[in-house]
Amino acid sequence: MNVEKSWVLVVFSLVLIILFFLGGSSMLFAETPVKNSENPGSVDLQNTDWDAEEPEKTKEADAPIDLQNTDWDAEEPEKPKEELSPIDLQNTDWDAEEPKKTGEEAAPVNLQNTDWDEDSPKDAPGQQMKPPARAGVVELNDGEISLIHWSGGFLFVIYLFGGFLTAYFLRNAGISKRCPPDVLILLHIFWPLEWILSPFFRNPVTLVNQGG
């Protein structure tokens, strides 16, 4: 095996290890419903003591409903009156004015003038109208959004043109002379590594035939 092939093998095995590590870690930490121990439907079959006696169930649970001896013609016991009393829609006086609400109940909530950022006492009328913050969702303001775009855009431009400039400026350096093309391209992709490694690769010595 020559030196070039060993370079290729080393780099590819490194890439594969990273890929497998990333894939494996993402699978490990993925929240799947099967692995969730709080899932009430899941039973830990492996750790179950199959020889242990099953605890006795309570009598209520054990007692089956005796369907054969049930008196099907008997009237069902009446439900409490509160449940049975419907609102008498026919006899309702629809023209009568509804009694006015009093006090805090009657006061309309002025949503536009409410100061949402102000800490209000719990019994204040506007308190319950405030939309609750959703868990896990971070709201960004305009300043944060522009910071993300500026810093991210700067990083993107640096990365993209950094690769091209590295390929241009280090084209005659020792590292580009010694590496096989495929490894050199990989170094261009991870170009900061190329700059770090470049001092360790000196230009190869060329022997000049001086005659004689």
Partner: peptide
């Protein structure tokens, strides 16, 4: 990451690496 620009960098990286696989197979 919550940053779309880092997504772009990732796309460049992954695109370059996948193309590199094609290059190694077909050129080398």
């Amino acid at each position: 990451t919550g940053n779309p620009w880092l997504g772009l960098i990732a796309a460049v990286l992954v695109g370059g690496l996948i193309a590199h696989v094609h290059g190694v197979a077909s050129i080398r």
